[in-house]
Amino acid sequence: MSESIITMRSETYAAKASKLLTRYGLRCRIVSVDPALTSRGCSVGVAVNYYDVKEVKRLLNGANITFGEVLGQREF
């Protein structure tokens, strides 16, 4: 599966996002983000299907859940 990671402020936001996405039937999981990929060091993100990114961003915005950058496409 091809995944993208949406960086979140912290575990709390990641958990909130994860619950929301699951409720909408979108597969996701909370992951640690490689500190080398961010400017602030350790962080967490929500890994989602690459093709769901647009919908995920729409849902997060709609629920006022702050998120950061979307990190590329990874193959698993």
Binding site: P35, R40, G41, S43
Partner: peptide, 11 residues
């Protein structure tokens, strides 16, 4: 805090 570890201030 587990996040923003590079910074010397709290999130």
């Amino acid at each position: 805090s587990g996040v923003n570890s590079i910074e010397d201030t709290m999130p």
